[in-house]
Amino acid sequence: MSTSILSVKDLSVGFHTYRGDIKAVRGVTFGVDEGEIVGIVGESGCGKSVTAHAVMGLLPKENSFISGGSISFMNNDITTLSEEAMENIRGSAISMIFQDPMTSLNPVLTIGQQMTEGVKGLTGQEAYEKAVALLERVGIANPKERMKDYPHQFSGGMRQRVMIAMALMGNPRLLFADEPTTALDVTIQAQILALLNELRHDMKMSIVLVSHDLGVIARICDRVNVMYAGRIVEQGTVAEIFHNPQHPYTKGLLNSLPRMDMSLDEELPVIDGQPPDLLYDITGCSFVSRCGCAMRVCTDTKPVEQSVSDSHKAECWLLAKNRSKEAV
């Protein structure tokens, strides 16, 4: 479990827009070890998908730029890799599945054509056999027959299974799953999550699961990164994040979910306000305007990452105060 597969250091990504440059990702650092499932959770616009796309080298060239930081995959720096070199990694060593299985498949090609399309180093027959085997592995009945079918002949859950099988064609070491179950029903979601969990054991691959759903993250992740306004504000093991959240944003997020034992007479705790506009620089903590425990230091100075344990870190001044108290 200790071999590092992916290490992202201080990654910053921006987008040119007519209003100016939006700094969508503002110094993100996280790692993925072999065989683990790492979750990135946050609300829309927090930069979680942009982070995933940056690692995949899928950011649109015309209007986006990586303004700092490094991405290293299996100890090779891939931040500045050429498009050709990236193409050798993408789809084989690193793969990705997307949110919407309806639109990420080509409607005019059969599943078989799409599955064997991007495979390198296999003959047509080998690729065909591999595709059939993988379709069977992800739970598609009659894989040989279904190879000849078009995407519209599959249901949403089945399409996501096909997407997963397709992502596995290159034997990836790392799979990015960007909101893989958001478009699916709960019963189908449970099936897909169980499949992903099985596959990481079978194929010894690591998975980065991007989601806004804390329930999905809690179900299969080993470690969790909580993102807010382009930064990872808290990271830790799944137990640390869910049982002992330290950052007020993580706490607020967990509290705002209705618990099964709640009645209508209790009001849901909310996080007031809106996330900040990422067009502008933020001098202090990005969460300060919505935080119930904000202090003067929070508006003036960016919080420094504080360690709660070896694996558990949060960017919040509240923790620094606690620590200095202990020291005194």
Partner: peptide, 25 residues
């Protein structure tokens, strides 16, 4: 029963024994 069992609960301790419903609508 199956619908309730499939809800992802935001608690990592509730992972075990998820009864999966087979098939689709």
């Amino acid at each position: 029963k199956t619908l309730l069992a499939a809800i992802p609960v935001p608690d990592p301790d509730v992972r075990a024994d998820i009864a999966l419903i087979k098939g689709e609508v």
